[in-house]
Structures are given as structure tokens and as C-alpha cells.
Simulated scan of single mutants.
Amino acid sequence: MQNSTKLSTLSFLLGSFFLCACSSTYQVVKSNRGEYKVTQDVTADSSVIRTYQPYKLKLDSQMNEVLGYSENELTKKLVNGESSLGNFLADASLAEARKIVPQIDFTMPSGNGGLRNDLPLGAITLSNVFQLMPFENELIVFELKGSDVQTLLDYIAVSGGQPVGGLTMKIKAKKPADVLIGGKPFDPSKSYSVLTSDYIAGGADGISSFKKPVSSKVLGLKIRDALIQYIKESKNKGVKISSKLDGRITND
């Protein structure tokens, strides 16, 4: 019994010691602040370079992959309401999305501000596509009432033109005119299947057309991935990317 009592007492004392040790508090008594300017005069740290170099080489090899080829430079410069790059992005997004939802009527997958870089004449690399579309924007198909489609057309007109596919229109005095969807005159009494991105649908640039859709379907396809697929498929067919101004939007 005495040994048992001694062990219990010893366990209690050790527990109390560790409890007190764990409850100790520390206070900062002194701190020093320094600034280190990063300039060209700073020598490279070889140990850091050795650490990231294998990852950089692997990433470079992936980003330098040639996806396909273009017959002409695709630029985001707006000319009379459209751009060669915007036309390409809209047509490629629409083509890939229609493999999932064939009945899509037209698309405005991105605004002009979402096109971040031109695509070059000749080889198009994975890096080029990431520079063009660095965002993780998802493609979504919305069924919209004619009245909501009208507000989208109004936005395209007042903004001077946006990337569109499956749609042609004239802009007169900042208002849409002679609108054709799928080659047929726009009918405000009908519903239309419209492809766009989650960013546009979320109200980007004050767009409210997608707030109350009849229905919506997330495709599980990013704009960037649609472009990559489209360019690769063209290359496999032996076809070069060719996107030019075709008058789908004219701004009078």
C-alpha cells in the first residue's frame, strides 16, 4: 500500500509540473525590423534554384507544347464591333459546348476585357492559351426568355460589340438591329438557349440577363479547356486555325 501511495503521489507531482510548464506564457521583449531591396544586384541563391529547377523544367516542357497552328494572328482589337480573337473564342467555345448540349442557339462566352492576350501567327502553345484565358471560368448553358435575351443584346450594342457566336446583329445608335440567331430573326416571344461563362452570368459589367433563367446547365467545361480541345482537334485534322472579321457584328 505504501508503494502504491508513493507512486500516486509521484504521478500527481509530475502531472502538476508538466501542467505548470505548459501554461507558461512568453512575451516579446525585443524586435528588429529590416528592409531588403530586391534588385538586379542581388545574387541568385543557388540552393533555391536547385530546389525549384526540376519543377520549372517540367512546367516549361508542358507549357511549350504546340497545340496547333494559326494561319493568321488573332488579335483582340475591336474593328467595327468585332475582333478576330473574339470570333475565334466564341466559335471554339460554341463548337465544344454543342458536343454536350447540341441545341445551344448562340453564345457570348466572355467580354472583351476577358481576352488577355493575342494568339500568334503559326504555332500556338499551351502557354499562349493560358495567357489568353488565365481564369478558371466555367461554361454554362442558360435557357432565357426573349425579354432577357433582349437585355443581353442591348448590352452588346451599348458596349460597342462583344465576342459572340451563332448570332449576327447591327448596332445602330447603340441599339441592336437586324438581329439573327441561328440565321433566323430574333423573336422576343421565344426562349433561347444561350452559352456563357459563370463570370458573365454572375453579373460581370452589370449584366443582369442571367439572373432569372428558365433553366441552366453547368457543362463541367472551362473556356480555356474548350479552346485547348478545339485547337488540338483542328491540328489532328490537319487544319490550321483561321479566324477573321466576318461582319457578325457591325457598328454603324
Rank of each mutant, 00 (worst) to 15 (best):
S8N: 12
S70I: 01
L94M: 12
A92T: 00
S23I: 15
F12S: 12
G68S: 02
L13F: 13
P54Q: 08
Q40A: 15
G86V: 03
V42Y: 04
S4H: 05
I49V: 04
A90V: 02
S70E: 00
A21T: 08
L14V: 09
R50Y: 00
K76L: 01
Y26H: 15
S16P: 11
T51F: 06
S93K: 11
G68K: 05
N3C: 06
K76Q: 02
K76S: 02
L85D: 05
N87M: 11
Y55P: 06
S4A: 10
Y55F: 10
E35H: 10
F88T: 05
D41G: 15
T39Q: 06
Q27N: 10
V48A: 09
A21Y: 08
L19K: 03
Q62T: 07
V42N: 14
L19S: 13
Y55I: 03
G15Q: 08
Y36A: 14
K77M: 03
E82D: 00
R33L: 13
K37H: 07
L85C: 01
Q27S: 15
K30L: 14
L94V: 02
G81P: 04
N72C: 07
Q40I: 07
L19D: 11
N64M: 03
V38R: 00
T39A: 13
C20H: 13
L59H: 05
S61G: 00
F18H: 13
K76G: 00
E73G: 05
D91H: 02
T39M: 05
L59Q: 03
G86F: 02
S11V: 06
K77G: 03
T43K: 07
S83E: 02
L10S: 14
G81E: 05
D91W: 04
G15L: 10
K56Y: 01
T51D: 11
T75G: 00
Q2G: 05
S46M: 14
T5E: 12
L74Q: 01
S61E: 01
S4V: 07
F17K: 13
L13D: 07
N32A: 09
P54D: 09
Y26F: 15
S47C: 14
S24C: 14
Y26G: 09
N3V: 03
Y55S: 13
V28K: 03
S84Q: 02
S84W: 00
R50K: 12
D45T: 15
A21G: 13
Y36S: 11
D45G: 11
V29Y: 05
R33A: 09
R33S: 02
R33D: 12
L10N: 14
K37G: 12
L14P: 06
V29S: 05
T9K: 01
C20R: 05
Q27V: 08
T9C: 06
K30C: 10
Q40S: 12
G34A: 05
S8I: 13
L14R: 01
L14C: 09
S47P: 07
